[in-house]
Design a binder for these strands. Structure first.
Lengths: 243, 243
DNA sequence: GGTCGTATGATTGTCAACAATCCGAGGACG
DNA sequence: CGTCCTCGGATTGTTGACAATCATACGACC
């Protein structure tokens, strides 16, 4: 870990990449609510770039599923339908489960646990200061770090989109979220249990806790839906989705 | 299922989407081997479009992880490193597990089993005709349909990239693959077992078979590596990957 | 002889203008 | 009165040209 450890990427990020990241952030924090049309001229002026790089960045988000493109109509931020919360959390459950497995079977568990501790401490701190936004942010940071700690490039890439969509769910259903989930203590406790199980090298418990954590979240956000038993409402019971 | 069932998408796909799909196919079937530089002028002439839409399409593949971009240097097809086969199959295992769970808990299992039967029949037919390429294609079609049958947009999108990378692995390690895995009968049998377990509503067995299937594939493609017990060689044991 | 500076060639990154398409309002017609 | 057609405005899709950057090869210098 010398001072010259991370000077290799002299090549700065591509412009499209920078804009794509900014757009992701804007979608994530609600600056671009679901359904918003992204006018190219406006955005290009806002970013102080031409329409070329901007379009390239937007195409990235299209392939990530954060934008939907209607030909000759424009690009829109996706709006989450009722079944999407189930879809998102079911996918997240799969990703985080795989990440946890990799950590438990080949990672430096203590180091990971320490990093996750930081996130949970931030959660507790946000709770004390009664800052629900910071609490949610720290919550997501916990899961993001869990996945990054797996060392899997693909899990990390896939999770990036899912965590953005998670935040979209949370801000879309903010009122429901607040009302039905008052206890931040439980939230902190749930995450601490996961960390403990990681430290104790108890893979089975880690996976069970993660699954329960996801199940809890789904039932809070979409009451009546369940990851573990049965399909989500609105899911086509008799066949495959069209898209 | 009327005759007018699927006439809704009058809007044809965006040009960038078409080119992106063509590029994906080219990468998948080996027309663009790993490490190839994608010259914009050449490709634009080949596709008979300008560089604009082409660049947009390539940015999509960058965000999907199929291309890597070096600023002012060009875009290159990713080349799979030794640890990638572990990464790919670990991610695939997670995705297909989640898809199977969704099918077992809320899908039309018989319908799914029938569709998967078609793929396996194609595998057997390819085996009889001694056509290993067709056999691999049918094999991947099996997994693709399994995931699509889950009805999850996100699982499907994430799997698309993974299946392309899987095919890249197979063609890159074709010699190894051939040598160490002569029995196509086993391959067909393994898939049939999965279908049977789906029909019998035996979720536990389905998941176990899928996991074993992935484990087998990893050990064939990267001997000495294992999904279930321990990390892959070349995986950073002490920390997180750089990228 | 080895190393460094420089010119060249090609490629990527960016931009502004042109063409195609679509939505909405307004009016004509049955 | 309802429907259809038409036109205007705006937006996206596409193009070709210009600017910036980098790799390579060659020659000068130590």
């Amino acid at each position: 870990m010398s001072v010259l450890a991370d000077i290799e990427p002299v090549n700065r990020e591509s412009t499209a990449g920078i804009i794509a990241r900014q757009l992701r952030d804007a979608i994530m924090n609600g600056s671009l609510p679901p359904g918003t049309q992204l006018g190219e001229t406006d955005l290009a002026a806002r970013f102080q770039v031409s329409r070329g790089p901007l379009r390239e960045a937007m195409q990235r988000l299209v392939s990530e599923g954060l934008l939907r493109s209607e030909r000759h109509r424009g690009l829109f931020v996706i709006d989450l339908e009722p079944g999407d919360v189930y879809d998102i959390y079911s996918a997240r459950s799969a990703i985080e489960r795989a990440a946890a497995i990799r950590i438990m079977r080949g990672g430096d568990r203590d180091r990971v646990a320490a990093m996750l501790d930081d996130a949970v401490h931030a959660m507790a701190e946000a709770d004390q200061q009664d800052d629900p936004a910071a609490l949610t942010e720290a919550d997501l940071r916990f899961h993001e770090e869990l996945i990054e700690a797996s060392g899997s490039r693909r899990l990390t890439r896939m999770a990036r989109t899912l965590l953005i969509e998670t935040r979209m769910c949370l801000s879309a259903l903010q009122e429901t979220y607040r009302k039905s989930y008052q206890g931040a203590d439980e939230r902190v406790a749930e995450h601490n249990q996961i960390i403990d199980a990681i430290r104790q090298d108890d893979e089975e418990t880690v996976l069970a806790l993660l699954e329960a954590h996801m199940e809890d979240a789904v039932q809070r956000l979409a009451p009546g839906t369940s990851l573990t038993s049965g399909a989500a409402p609105g899911l086509p019971v008799g066949g495959v989705d069209i898209a």
